[in-house]
């Protein structure tokens, strides 16, 4: 069935799905039954079933019945959802770029001042939020002083969400970390790379007050922070422009501070030249970067949890690329024979 086509089953199926969803919602929120957890054995069987059906699709394609796009969507959805409930863990290998970023953080002394810049919005939170959470956990455990800011309007709000989550954990509650002393959120400032440029002169000129409107000088953590020279490390989380590239070009290269970055996978390849030349200390690339960061810091969270879904969905995509190419070749051949016939 192709994109845009209507079917007479639509309404009954929709009603069934809505009813089922309501039942599950009420049942789970009232805790009539427990979480859906698939044992290792069952997980393996399910994976084999999916693999088998993919082979069946390949055979059908060879027979000249290629699968529609909705089939691809369905498989990807299954490949993403199933592993979330599987009790399997995936071994995560830490790549050199993540290792380098970690070493850079490790080399910092207790009480080091770290500038954490949040340049993303909820659209990229799935990839970057786990990195933010791991970073805060690591920073607070090491006693870093964290200065948060954002060049995206929603960035500082994302930071606050990660902070709230981390600070509600018992481990950090007992530390009784204080706002303004152990961490501060300077908020958003418009002006993109010009903000970085001006911060090179004086932070205060761009952030006269923090996120809550408290004057800069009345916050102990930043009272002695004039500009980048008083910062020991900068950690940037970015999903586009302005982001890591602008921080490297306008910040690192002009004012010479150390920076590590967490990026959405989309823009990670573009950052590697800066890694090779030493303009960036390390890179966390996408969900796998987040999982590796969790692995090396030993704060396992969502990044690690999602890795199995990530891998499984990649396998499905690879299989569909093969199926797609088979279909393409067959289609081309079909067209070539048609042309011959016409000739």
């Amino acid at each position: 069935m192709e994109h845009g086509a209507k079917s007479r089953y639509e309404i009954p199926v929709l009603i069934a799905v809505v009813t089922l969803t309501l039942v599950i919602y009420v049942a789970r929120h009232a805790e009539w039954f427990g979480y859906l957890q698939l044992s290792a054995g069952l997980s393996l069987i399910l994976m084999l079933l999916v693999a088998g059906s993919l082979i069946w699709i390949l055979i059908r394609t060879l027979d000249g019945n290629p699968a529609g796009r909705r089939m691809v969507f369905l498989y990807v959805a299954v490949a993403v959802v199933l592993p979330l409930s599987m009790q399997l863990t995936q071994k995560i290998e830490v790549t050199p770029e993540v290792n380098q970023l970690y070493r850079g953080l490790q080399a910092l002394p207790h009480g080091a001042k770290v500038l954490a810049t949040f340049d993303y919005d909820p659209g990229s939170a799935a990839e970057l939020q786990p990195m933010a959470e791991t970073f805060f956990k690591y920073a607070f455990d090491r006693g870093f002083k964290v200065i948060i800011m954002g060049l995206w309007p929603q960035g500082p709000a994302q930071a606050n969400m990660a902070l709230t989550k981390v600070l509600s954990e018992e481990r950090y509650k007992v530390k009784s970390l204080r706002y303004g002393v152990d961490y501060v959120n300077l908020g958003f400032q418009s002006g993109n790379e010009f903000v970085i440029q001006r911060m090179g002169g004086e932070f205060k000129s761009m952030f006269p007050t923090d996120y809550n409107g408290t004057p800069y000088d009345s916050l102990p953590i930043i009272r002695n922070v004039k500009n980048f020279s008083n910062i020991d490390y900068s950690f940037n989380l970015s999903a586009g422009y302005p982001g890591t590239k602008e921080w490297v070009l306008v910040g690192v290269d002009q004012f010479g501070f150390k920076m590590g970055a967490g990026n959405t996978a989309v823009q990670t390849t573009g950052m590697y030249p800066y890694l090779r030349s030493g303009q960036l200390i390390g890179i966390l690339g996408g969900m796998s970067g987040a999982a590796e960061f969790e692995e090396i810091t030993k704060y396992r969270g969502k990044g690690t949890k999602f890795m199995l879904s990530q891998s499984f969905s990649h396998v499905v995509v690879v299989v569909f690329i093969i199926i797609g190419n088979v279909a393409y070749i067959m289609f081309e051949r079909g067209r070539a024979t048609e042309k011959k016939k016409k000739a």
Binding site: V76, G123, V266, M287, F306, S309, H314
Partner: peptide, 9 residues
């Protein structure tokens, strides 16, 4: 990978 991550989220 990025797109899958968003979907997983």
């Amino acid at each position: 990978m990025s797109r899958m991550s968003l979907l997983i989220g």
